[in-house]
Design a protein around this nucleic acid. Sequence first.
DNA 1: TCTCAATTATGACTACACTCAGATTATAGA
DNA 2: TCTATAATCTGAGTGTAGTCATAATTGAGA
Lengths: 225, 225
Amino acid sequence: MVERKKKQVSEARAGAEERREAVPAGRRERNKQEKLARIVEAAKELFGTKGFAETTTQEIAEKADIGTGTLFLYAKSKEDLLVMVFKDEMIATSQEAFKTLPAGSSLINQLMHVFDMMIVYHARDIDLAKALIREITVPPEKSSRHDDLMALMPVIYGGIADLIIAGQKAGKLRLDIDPLLVAESLFAIYYIGLVGWLSGIVTKTQFIKRLRPRLELAIEGIVAH
Amino acid sequence: MVERKKKQVSEARAGAEERREAVPAGRRERNKQEKLARIVEAAKELFGTKGFAETTTQEIAEKADIGTGTLFLYAKSKEDLLVMVFKDEMIATSQEAFKTLPAGSSLINQLMHVFDMMIVYHARDIDLAKALIREITVPPEKSSRHDDLMALMPVIYGGIADLIIAGQKAGKLRLDIDPLLVAESLFAIYYIGLVGWLSGIVTKTQFIKRLRPRLELAIEGIVAH
DNA sequence: TCTCAATTATGACTACACTCAGATTATAGA
DNA sequence: TCTATAATCTGAGTGTAGTCATAATTGAGA
């Protein structure tokens, strides 16, 4: 039973196995792909217009023209669906951020560029961002989106680590540091600020305004010389 | 109606208003305090033995010997109840951590002492810690525990900021930095690690092992000299 | 002591995420 | 083409968080 579900989910995901382009194996597989696409589209539409909490799984199933039970063959939970729907956008946003870096700029400016773009993305729909960050930060047991998050984080961490490596090569940063370790710390500073903003503890303006000096201090250090 | 609930909740909370010590106003107020105490005790017991998700609000109400609806006059939601039950312990743990600092030790050792104690606390019940961190990090709308969190954070941020101020006075740290701003960044590094541990991305050992160099780099900076 | 308005308590009820036994559909082999 | 098996779908059913109209309790003032 578990085996069966596992098979479905993994196959349903972007048809990773039978990838023969224009001819997606058989009608069965094609139907599944179409259904998955309809579900994602319906969920995205409804989450965007009504909000996450206000959207019922019934509505999503109806809009996707499937039975209520069928929905849960494609997503383990409503929260799962949320991540499923928006992870691609988030990955794309991150990749775009690193592609449009201001050339030859300082590390702090490059970091601010990346984080700014992420902030702009989340600002499009704060309630949705809040729900999304909630699921991503501490995924509940019911979530199977661990894999999806494992696809997002390397993009971000790797991108920041690359910036640090570039800084090392330019002779501006210490060579005796682990770029990935530092990347995670810098991201942590951004992330906690993001959470504070989405939780309403600080405004977006305050968040952005304080982000830069925080990152600067993390780069320059706080020890007296 | 909204007004009514607000009143109830705020009065129920530790009897902040009518504080005449041994004589808690009237029977009404006393009953409310007793009920609140029974609820918290019942919830703590059940969350600890059965786990958060596996405990039903019915069970808590039964154990506290109140009606199912009454429970929601004292806590806005099940998640609310979780924070309500454990916030005091968390505040106490934080205060204890700062009280037992290794005297005359370096900033990094003092930070590790504080964070170690918090980690030990969360390690007592990882599932519970996970649920708790989930609620604290991005509180859902249904939560009214904003105030409670506003009581916890100053203890932590203030405590760390004091360590930084001490370092400044000892001439070891830069004077041109905002201690609170730095405190939040250092805590962010710990917090993201904590989340990674509780989400099963890294083990507790890995988390602790990597925490120290991260904090060291944040203190010393990563720029080449 | 006896109202009576205000506060607090209650559990039947509702809404909704999620399950599961049985129905339906696709595919491979005869 | 027909059949058998596996894969997929379905919606009535289930469990539980949270609501709300009504009941019970309290205390101030008569």
